[in-house]
Design a protein around this nucleic acid. Sequence first.
DNA 1: TTGACATATTCCGATATAGGTATATATTGC
DNA 2: GCAATATATACCTATATCGGAATATGTCAA
Lengths: 120, 120
Amino acid sequence: MARAATTADAFNAVAEPRRRQILDALAGGELPVNRIVAVLGLGQPQVSKHLRVLREVGAVEVRSEGRQRLYRLNGEALKPIHDWVKEYERTWTERLERMDEVLEELKSKEQGDGSDDSQR
Amino acid sequence: MARAATTADAFNAVAEPRRRQILDALAGGELPVNRIVAVLGLGQPQVSKHLRVLREVGAVEVRSEGRQRLYRLNGEALKPIHDWVKEYERTWTERLERMDEVLEELKSKEQGDGSDDSQR
DNA sequence: TTGACATATTCCGATATAGGTATATATTGC
DNA sequence: GCAATATATACCTATATCGGAATATGTCAA
C-alpha cells in the first residue's frame, strides 16, 4: 500500500490547473460543458472528468436543461482552503515577521557558515 | 504522453495533507527535521521528501545548525493560493449571490414546461 | 424508430508520486 | 581515524490519475 489515501478534498481538486481554469470560467456564470471544452481546448471526456471531481468536492453544481448540462460555481466549497491559507497571510503582511527573519539570518551568520546551502 | 506536466507549484505542494501538517507545525516557529518527524509520526525519509517539495516551491527555508537542519516557514509562497481563492470569497459572503442563485432556479423552472423552444 | 447532438463513462497507456528500506552525506565527539 | 547522530537521496513497489479513444447514456427532432 503506497500513495496517500485518495484525498478527494477541495485542496486536491484545486491542485489541478485545468480545474482551476474551469472554476475561473464558471466565475462568470453558468456554462454548458461544450462551452468549457471550447475555453479549455481540452477533449470533452477530459472536461467531464474534471467536472466530476469538482462536483464530488462540491465546488460545482449541475442542472440539466434539455440535452445540456449547465454547471455553476459553488465557491463555498473553497472555504476550507481560504480558511487555511488565511492563517498564513500575516506572514507576508506583517513587518514584524520580516524583522524576525533578518534577526535569524544574522544569528546564523554569527554562528558560522551555516547561512547558505538552501539550494542543491 | 499523458499526465499533466508535473506542476511543482504551491497549489500542488499544499494538496498533500502531510505537507499542510508540516507547514502548520512550522507556523509555531523554526523546527529541526526530527521534531517534525515526531509530530507527524511519519518516517524520516518521507518527511525529508515532503520538505524538499515544500522547499522547491519556496514554502519553507532551511538553515544548518550543527548536524541539524532547521526549517522555517515562508508563508509568502502561499500568496498565489490566497490571491486565487480570495476571489471566490464573496461567493459565500455576499447575499446578492444567493439572490442570483434563486433567480436562476426560477428561470429554469419556467423553461422546463415548454415542449418546444419557439417561446424562448 | 432513426439520427443528430450533448455529455458521461469505460478502457487504455504513460507517468507522477506516496511510503518503505537501504544507503549516502555531513557533522560532532572520541 | 572511527562511531554516533542528523538528514538527504536512491531505489523499489503500489497506486493515483492525466489525457486519449471508443463507447454508453440521454435528449430532441423528423
